[in-house]
Amino acid sequence: MDVEQARTSQLRNIAEATATPLDEWYARVEAQRAQGMRHGQLVAWLKSEHGLTHGNANALVHAAAAASSTDAAPADLVAEQYAGGKAEMRPVYDRLVEVAQSLGGDVEVAPKKTSVSLRRSKQFAVLTPASRTRIDVGLNLGDAPADGRVEQTSGMCTHRVRVASVAEVDAELEALLRAAYDRA
């Protein structure tokens, strides 16, 4: 049995054991994600509120994210993120992607439903349109200190920089993206 078959079998077993279809689980997970829960919080929620084991909760969160990210083409996902009131932030997003891609030919830009992952061998940054006036740039910088505009966070990204304009995509932010890229 290969990895994909094992994953499919695990998800089928979750649905059977809980008598809840996977689509319903995915909807529940995505509803919590839309309220701001991150991966680890979603896993903890599934364990505490629904009695799932850690492995099953983790698999379900990953599967829900994959299911929601494949509903539309990548360009459509980005267009949806920067539609309506967030449209003015699209040039900021475009500049951030341009800077990320200049770091090396191995940068993968992977749009999801509510954010865009920047990956190399692993994710090094996440671009999230947080509001009509701001994009949050999540960075994987390990135990680097937070100072100035760099905030310490928890979860997959260890740091965050809030960016409100193209001008704020400056040499300091480019250096931070480079540091995160180099760690990936």
Rank of each mutant, 00 (worst) to 15 (best):
R28F: 11
K47G: 08
E24H: 03
A110E: 12
R132Q: 13
M89D: 01
R28Y: 07
G105S: 14
V78F: 00
V43I: 13
N140H: 09
V43H: 09
L22T: 08
P145G: 06
M1K: 11
V116D: 02
T158A: 09
H54K: 15
A65L: 10
C157Y: 09
A164P: 09
R90C: 01
E168S: 11
E151A: 14
L176R: 03
Q101C: 03
K113P: 01
D143W: 04
S117W: 04
A17M: 12
Y26A: 01
G51D: 03
S121I: 06
Q41H: 09
R38T: 10
A175C: 03
Q35F: 05
C157Q: 15
L177D: 03
A184C: 09
S131T: 12
Q41M: 13
A57N: 07
R95D: 00
Y26M: 01
L176A: 03
V116I: 10
A63L: 12
A167M: 10
P129S: 08
A34T: 15
R7Q: 14
S131Q: 05
E4P: 00
A67I: 09
E172R: 06
D136T: 11
A171I: 04
A34S: 15
M1V: 13
R183G: 04
N56F: 07
P74N: 07
R183S: 11
V29S: 02
R149G: 09
L177K: 05
V116C: 11
V92Q: 01
G138I: 06
R119N: 07
D170Q: 05
V169P: 03
E49P: 01
D94M: 08
K113S: 14
V78A: 04
G36F: 12
S9G: 09
G84K: 11
C157V: 15
R38K: 14
A179Y: 00
A34I: 07
R90P: 02
L173V: 09
L46G: 01
V163D: 02
G55P: 11
A164N: 14
V163A: 02
Q35K: 15
A72Q: 14
A125P: 13
A6H: 10
N13P: 00
L60N: 02
A44H: 10
D143G: 05
V137N: 04
A100T: 00
M1I: 10
S115N: 15
E98V: 07
A144F: 07
G40P: 00
E151D: 13
Q10H: 12
S69D: 14
V3C: 05
E16P: 04
A34P: 08
L177V: 09
R160M: 15
A31H: 10
A175H: 08
P111F: 06
A57V: 06
A73I: 04
R183T: 06
A146H: 04
Y93V: 04
Q35C: 13
A175P: 02
Y181W: 05
L60W: 06
D23T: 10
G85F: 08
S165A: 15
A167Y: 06
E4K: 14
G51A: 07
T70A: 15
A72V: 06
D136M: 12
A17C: 11
L60H: 06
K86T: 13
V161Q: 04
P91R: 04
G104L: 12
K47Y: 01
S115Y: 13
W45K: 05
T18R: 06
P145N: 07
N140R: 15
L77G: 06
E174L: 02
K86A: 15
R162C: 11
I14E: 00
N13V: 11
Q81H: 05
S68N: 14
A175M: 07
S131M: 10
E108I: 07
